[in-house]
Amino acid sequence: MAGAEKFVEADNAEAIITRIEHKSRKIESLLKQNKPVEALKTALEGSPPMTRDERCKSANWIVVHRALMAIKDVDGMFSSLDPEYYDILMKYLYRGLSTGDRPTCDQCLRIHEKLTERAGLGCILRSLADTVNTV
């Protein structure tokens, strides 16, 4: 559907991976400076990668996961996270829940509760109904 033609072919996967690696380094330095929300914003930037390549999606998830797990103060995070990130964040929360990993699920559920409070059920619908831009 919309944007489907924007998908790049697998040849570009290497370029996307390089970009994600660069993003990962930036996030590590932001986390060292104790800026977890900035790190999460950076992680969500340019997500999901415009590709069907599962390798890229996994690489991006690892980066987002790293930033997600570093969030300690969920309320504080939402006070500085703009609503434009809500839909994409919700998608990654569901990806996190699908891993079945205990600490990841705990963290995702904590954020999910607060996010639903802010963004409503519509946000959940938007992340589940979109079968094209999967994360």
Partner: peptide, 13 residues
């Protein structure tokens, strides 16, 4: 050349 706007809302569809 249509001009489109999307409005997302917090409720059910």
């Amino acid at each position: 050349s249509p001009l489109a706007q999307n409005v997302a809302f917090r409720n059910l569809p």
